[in-house]
Nucleic acid binder design. Structure first.
Length: 473
RNA sequence: GGCGGCAUAGCCAAGCGGUAAGGCGACGGAUUGCAAAUCCGUUAUUCCCCGGUUCGAUCCCGGGUGCCGCCUCCA
């Protein structure tokens, strides 16, 4: 078994090897907490979560850090650029700190609902100013950065590898730049490490002046270093982060430490909605609340967002949510049937029947995940197992092994299959019995009435040859 | 204008040089008191278009077209 990942840095699939055997240090670019997280955000975070889960499945201990950016994001790079948080704060008539706390809380609640495993730490930019300043000072000392007034800029020309991640050439950037060239920068492509602006609400006094705040990219360099060290194994983010954010992080971190920053850079493709881009003006920027208000569960959303490969475009529509819900039910149902097969119900006569085909399924599942987290293929393997189960091809022993695999292993990676046995209370049980009695008496009007009543309570009845079974809708 | 990615059935979505996985939906049949679930069958002679390389291309190359992302602190 060998895990291979697509490395944005080399644009190729490479065998995964951690710096330290058995341990993976991973940094995920998290949200900027100025507005409600949406399905597009979830895709990127679910990708990171799936990666972490697969690494853990593979036996690694994962040191995972996801940052919370709560300061310093300008809406543009010009002089009158306004901090996104502060802009939102003005709109809502709250102070920016309140906004960031509110959104961060929503973000954590969403992650929880989506079944995302918790990172070791979720560092906040605002709480790592000293760490950022340490790097900034170091970069100035090494000639990678220069001070102009109360601002500090990174000198891109001092870092020849700048552009390697994104494929951008510095000359092209300068030529096509839409940002206004700022006079005090040595070169247009230089980026800010520290800025000063008295109008800024979130600001810190430093040797660069009383009204300073950090540039966007420096926070990640500082927090990754503080919580994971100078060198990390994996750095993830949305594809939009490749440039300029990650490109700049590399320049800062490596310029400062002198050693390679992240071995692997992995980026999730943007989620499309209705086949196109997601935008506020189109009204298709959905949050978890919107999805749930339409009657879909968080785990169905999780399924919908991980069923496509993370580097392929993935579409989101309400039809797709319906489809995902149905497909997931099939997987839930497989677990129920496997559990029944343990008692011989729907099982193949010989206990070991189906062990080989199960082994094939497991091998395919693992091979697919090892191949750069190919979740669609892994899911296909699971659906193949479902077919085997429905056809009654698994004996009791095979069913036990398969159930254990689905519950403990496959779902430890997917995190959305309903594996807990559902229970019903005595009242429901009585109703089911009453319906059976009515059916026996051929009082179908009454039996259908009870069936409808149960359906209204979320219980679906299935009349089989060996009696009735129920499941939750 | 520069850089990168994608285009596969009604809808999603794998495959990426050897003759099209899987899911959802739809239709026909079986089963059922009726349903639901399940089972059987049908649903891409073909992978955006045009050239080329090859014994052979969805997969490689060139050119179009369309969509997505970055170059604007949006995952």
């Amino acid at each position: 078994m060998a895990f291979a990942v697509h490395n944005s840095l080399t644009r190729t699939k490479e065998p995964f090897r951690s710096l330290e055997p058995g341990v993976v240090r991973m940094y995920n670019c998290g949200p900027t907490v100025y507005s409600r997280p949406h399905v597009g955000n979830y895709r990127a975070f679910l990708f990171a979560d799936t990666l972490r889960r697969w690494l853990e499945y593979s036996g690694f201990r994962v040191e995972q850090v996801m940052n919370i950016t709560d300061v310093g994001h300008l809406t543009d790079d010009a002089d009158d650029g306004e901090d996104k948080l502060e802009k939102q704060a003005r709109k809502e008539k709250l102070d920016p700190w309140a906004i960031s706390r509110k959104i961060a809380a929503q973000f954590f609640a969403d992650l929880d609902a989506l079944g995302v495993r918790k990172a070791k730490v979720y560092p906040k930019a605002s709480e790592h100013i000293p760490e950022m300043l340490e790097i900034i000072d170091g970069l100035i000392a090494k000639g990678h950065a220069y001070v102009v007034g109360g601002d500090v800029y990174f000198d891109v020309k001092s870092f020849p590898r700048y552009g390697r991640l994104s494929g951008n050439r510095v000359e092209d950037l300068a030529a096509g730049a839409r940002i206004a060239v700022r006079e005090e920068k040595h070169n247009p492509e230089d980026f800010a490490l520290w800025k000063s602006d008295p109008a800024h609400v979130m600001k810190w006094a430093t040797r660069f002046g009383p009204n300073g705040f950090p540039g966007w990219h420096i926070e990640c360099s500082a927090m990754a270093r503080k919580h994971l060290g100078d060198r990390i194994d994996i750095h993830t983010g949305g594809e939009d982060n490749i440039f300029p954010h990650h490109e700049c992080e590399i320049a800062q971190s490596e310029g400062f430490t002198g050693v390679p920053f992240a071995t692997y850079w992995m980026h999730a493709k943007f989620l499309q909605v209705d086949g196109g881009k997601m935008s506020k003006s189109l009204g298709n920027v959905y949050s978890l609340d919107d999805v749930q208000a339409k009657g879909f569960s968080a785990r169905a959303l999780r399924f919908a967002l991980i069923r496509g490969h993370y580097r392929q475009p993935l579409n989101f529509t309400w039809d797709i949510m319906r489809e995902s819900t149905s497909a997931l039910e099939g997987l839930d149902d497989m677990v129920v049937r496997l559990r029944r097969a343990l008692h011989g119900e729907g099982a193949s006569p010989s206990a070991d029947d189906g062990l080989e085909s199960f082994a094939d399924v497991k091998a395919e599942f693992e091979a697919a995940m090892d191949d750069d987290l190919n979740t669609p293929r892994a899911l296909a393997a699971l659906f193949k197992l479902r077919t085997h189960v429905l056809e009654g091809r698994l004996g009791i022993s095979a069913a036990a092994v398969a159930l254990q695999f689905v519950e403990r292993r496959a779902n430890s990676v997917l995190g959305c299959i309903q594996t807990e046995a559902a229970t019903i209370d005595a009242e429901i049980e009585t109703l089911i019995e009453q319906r059976q009695a009515a059916r026996k008496a051929k009082d179908f009007k009454e039996s259908d009435r009870i069936r409808d009543e149960l359906l209204a309570r979320g219980i679906v009845l299935e009349d089989g040859q060996s009696g009735v079974t129920w499941k939750r809708k």
